[in-house]
Design a protein around this nucleic acid. Structure first.
Lengths: 345, 345
DNA sequence: GAATGTAATGCAACCGGTTGCATGTCAAGC
DNA sequence: GCTTGACATGCAACCGGTTGCATTACATTC
């Protein structure tokens, strides 16, 4: 019964030393080595020092996978977004990463490409090896989300499901400010260039436009740009110009940018003859002309979401949290006074 | 000695059934359950069917972490990029994801934020739980990269280290075409707006500009935009205009876009009085005017890199691979005939 | 000096799978 | 009818850590 699994000659000689090798080399038990790394306060300083020294020499690093198996803590979280390539997400991803990093966590990124089935598949793959999930603009139906939430701490971004922790980018105040801004500039008839009907953000924005416009006596028409993109925005220009409005507020910056391109192609000058407002503020000053937009602080959303996830993972927060992020209007150069009204068209 | 670990009442009653529970419920051994999932061809069809049925009923899913511990295959790969927020990366990330997904792999995303120390930290966290790594635009020094490559399959993007599998986006042909294009339009003096000196891409582009310009008898000046961004591009405009050149080719699209904004601010019309060429083709037609640029097919790079990683993980490809991706010029509206020369300035 | 308490370390079971080998079953071959 | 072999399944060790409990060593107190 020779069971000297430690000294056993493996095919890979020097790579990846295990806890047993460190234990043997430093003349202590595996338990002590383990504690030197995970609970050093239980040990003599001297012991910790010695073990770590040996470990260093051998190039030992605790095996995360093995650790995860026995403790159930993997040190991983998952972030699933609906479209990595949409400029709304990269800053959000970056902020989420940063926050997770600070907590020593690794992050899995999933890209659902707007497809619920894909998203479900990804969740399935991730859930076994993460301690928590963040779903940004999830396209999953409520039932699925609830089920996953029973298995793991889960935080939603821009999805409003009761009982599940969520962070919502509340663009209503910013949109309201945008309407006020346009009203002050003398615009009376405006268009809302709308996004996906299933999107929580779109519903929220459209309602805010309606409400505020009504309050100020403006008339609003809705023109779709679906899916929201530069191209659909551009294509919407004709219809919008034909409708006789003098300003438009778009579902997002990409649509707004497309719209401006469409207007330019029709020889409609922005902001001289037509004003455009975007949403999300993801393009900064890079458009021509620089876009007036509603800043949605998407980076903060990533940061906050991971923060909430962390506290849920640790403390096991009981109460439901519905975190709202404020928004505000950033005025640049795509909005200006309403053109003098022509008598007839 | 009552050691009935299987039926033992855990605190969590129904969640996450284990292989033992499935084994018991279906009246077979754990080994058989294991094989029903990982090597069904070893078992009777009937057995597989029965086990899977029971597993389904119980909601059993094999635990990835446990599996990884015993097999050493985690089913994960890591992708580290230097800046998620740079528009060059999202398409690359997306393509890499897609490819990994098809192979049933989960991907960890790391963001080094251009910081070698951070990148090293991330690699350390990932390496224990992945089967392979892709480093895009790595800022690590060669020695570190080589070391990691001995531990795990590793593929580089836009980093040229001998002996390590790498995919390089070869923009030289596209840049050469751009110079030719400008020469044909009558430009004689041009500027190269350069990026990070340590960047492989930048060196390659600058050299291509030099070489091709010399061949055609154009003169080139170099103007820095560091770090490469919209803002540094914008700021470079003054110096460029003052130098008397009639066209510029920028390190990337962002710089080019900034440059166009800077030119507009100086009342220099593009393309009438000045031509601008970008690089990477990540902005499509969204600039004003639409940017002539060198298409670098960054999405393909992600796809190819993961593909190479996979083959390295499986077959254990022996020979070194240096995969070059071609580039070509996309002509849009930011380039035009050189303005008629004024006698003096 | 014996009893008591406390701090440091070791022992061995356990996490949930995988897998080499042994065992058992059944049918074909002589 | 008994041997032989192929095939299906079970046994038990193993992956590399963690942790409850036992043990040991040492200091304190009376």
């Amino acid at each position: 019964m020779k069971r000297d699994s430690d000294s056993g000659g493996k095919q890979r000689p020097s790579v990846v030393p295990t806890i047993s090798q460190v234990a043997k080399a430093s003349g202590v038990s595996r338990a002590t080595v383990s504690r030197a790394f995970s609970r050093p306060e239980m040990l003599t300083k001297e012991t910790v020092r010695r073990v770590k020294e040996v470990a260093d020499k051998l190039g030992y690093v605790p095996n995360q996978v093995a650790r995860a198996l026995s403790t159930g803590r993997h040190g991983n979280v998952a972030l699933i977004v609906s479209d990595v390539a949409n400029p709304f997400f990269p800053p959000l991803i970056r902020a989420a990463q940063l926050r997770a990093d600070q907590a020593g966590l690794c992050v899995f990124l999933g890209n659902s490409d707007e497809d619920p089935a894909r998203e479900e598949l990804l969740v399935g793959r991730f859930i076994g090896q993460v301690e928590g999930l963040v779903l940004a603009s999830s396209r999953l139906d409520e039932e699925h989300i609830r089920r996953h939430a029973t298995r793991r701490p889960l935080v939603l971004i821009n999805r409003d499901i009761e009982g599940i922790t969520r962070v919502l980018i509340d663009t209503a105040p910013g949109v309201a400010a945008a309407i006020a801004h346009l009203a002050e500039l003398g615009h009376r008839h405006i268009a809302y260039v709308s996004g996906p009907t299933t999107s929580w953000s779109n519903q929220q924005r459209r309602n805010a436009v309606r409400r505020e416009a009504e309050k100020r006596g403006l008339t609003v028409i809705a023109v779709p740009a679906r899916p929201p993109s530069y191209d659909t925005g551009r294509l919407a220009a004709t219809q919008i110009v034909a409708s006789g409005v003098t300003a438009a507020i778009a579902f997002d910056d990409l649509v707004a940018q497309g719209l401006m391109a469409g207007l330019a192609a029709l020889d409609v000058e922005v902001p001289k003859s037509f004003s455009v407002v975007g949403c999300d503020d993801v393009l900064g000053e890079t458009t021509y002309p620089p876009l007036t937009t509603v800043s949605a602080r998407c980076a903060d959303a990533g940061d906050v979401a991971v923060g909430l996830l962390l506290s849920q993972m640790n403390g096991g927060v009981s109460g439901e949290i519905r975190h709202k992020l404020n928004s505000h209007l950033v005025i640049r150069a795509s909005t200006g006074p309403a053109p003098v009204k022509r008598r007839s068209r």
